[in-house]
Simulated scan of single mutants.
Amino acid sequence: MVMLDHLEPPLLSQAINSVLTKIADAEHIPSTVPTIIAPFLVPASKLKLEGRLLTKNSGKLPLYSIQVGPETDVSRAIAAKTQKPPPSLQIHYEPLACFLHLVRAANLPTSIIVGQRSQSPFNQALSEDLQTLYEIGQLAASTTGTYFQREQTSTNWIPTAKTASGGGVGESWLAFYGCYISIY
């Protein structure tokens, strides 16, 4: 599990590329490459449906899935439990565009789950965004045979950083920006 939160290009593209390279080159992975499940909460202002920006009045989008690369059992299961984005849905979200570009180039089996981030006032938005995260967590858990419990999900995510001298970071840009990527 890898969580990249609040990264912007070019650091975002470098971090994603490092993660995808580690997955593709991992020696501990059996002969088949695992399916990458990549959830994205996209701000409503970055989504257009039928040529109009989605607003608070437009209602909440269901979870959409986009399958990239070879199809797997996991990607089929996710597709069965989500909706396919309509052709009129336009997503103008740079982190997702960056991820799509890199995962297509790597040709790794990937299921991208797209949920809408709320535009409501702060407390209501947090509640709506957490609900979307819970739905994504349940979806990922049910399709991968893992366990997800809503009550034990922490809402205070505090990133930890390891330095090049203490954490064995191989890329200088990771140490410079205080990032450390681990794949579990």
Rank of each mutant, 00 (worst) to 15 (best):
34 P>K: 13
76 R>C: 06
175 A>L: 03
40 F>Y: 02
76 R>Q: 14
52 R>Q: 13
49 L>M: 11
12 L>P: 12
4 L>P: 13
44 A>W: 12
109 P>L: 10
95 P>F: 04
12 L>Q: 10
63 L>M: 11
151 E>V: 01
113 I>A: 08
178 G>D: 07
158 I>Y: 00
131 Q>F: 10
146 T>P: 00
72 T>D: 05
92 H>F: 14
62 P>F: 02
69 G>M: 07
28 H>Q: 12
164 A>Y: 03
17 N>V: 00
10 P>S: 05
129 D>L: 01
182 S>F: 11
116 Q>D: 03
172 S>W: 04
53 L>M: 11
64 Y>I: 00
175 A>S: 15
76 R>M: 11
181 I>H: 03
85 P>E: 06
5 D>W: 08
95 P>M: 01
41 L>E: 01
47 L>Q: 10
13 S>T: 13
159 P>Q: 02
13 S>G: 12
76 R>V: 09
143 T>H: 04
142 S>W: 05
16 I>W: 00
178 G>S: 07
28 H>T: 13
114 V>D: 01
58 S>V: 03
22 K>N: 07
75 S>F: 09
160 T>Q: 15
107 N>E: 13
115 G>C: 07
183 I>R: 12
1 M>Y: 06
34 P>H: 13
103 V>K: 03
113 I>K: 08
155 T>Q: 15
97 A>C: 05
80 A>R: 14
2 V>C: 09
26 A>D: 15
69 G>E: 10
143 T>L: 09
128 E>M: 04
2 V>K: 02
75 S>Y: 02
168 G>Y: 04
105 A>C: 02
153 T>E: 07
138 Q>V: 12
28 H>D: 14
72 T>I: 11
80 A>M: 08
115 G>M: 05
110 T>V: 00
74 V>E: 09
26 A>Y: 01
32 T>Y: 09
174 L>A: 07
156 N>M: 12
126 L>Y: 10
13 S>E: 15
114 V>Y: 04
38 A>E: 00
131 Q>C: 01
140 A>F: 07
110 T>W: 09
154 S>M: 04
182 S>A: 12
127 S>I: 00
33 V>C: 14
82 T>M: 09
77 A>T: 11
170 G>H: 03
8 E>L: 08
62 P>R: 13
32 T>D: 15
90 Q>I: 15
167 G>E: 04
16 I>K: 03
89 L>H: 01
183 I>E: 03
149 Q>S: 13
115 G>W: 09
170 G>R: 09
82 T>P: 00
93 Y>A: 08
134 Y>V: 15
21 T>P: 01
82 T>D: 07
16 I>E: 10
142 S>D: 13
128 E>S: 03
110 T>K: 11
45 S>F: 13
33 V>S: 14
54 L>D: 01
161 A>I: 08
141 A>M: 06
78 I>Y: 08
15 A>L: 05
137 G>N: 05
175 A>M: 02
137 G>F: 00
81 K>S: 12
140 A>Q: 12
89 L>I: 02
12 L>D: 04
118 S>R: 04
81 K>G: 00
141 A>W: 08
28 H>C: 10
131 Q>L: 11
148 F>G: 01
101 H>A: 10
146 T>Y: 08
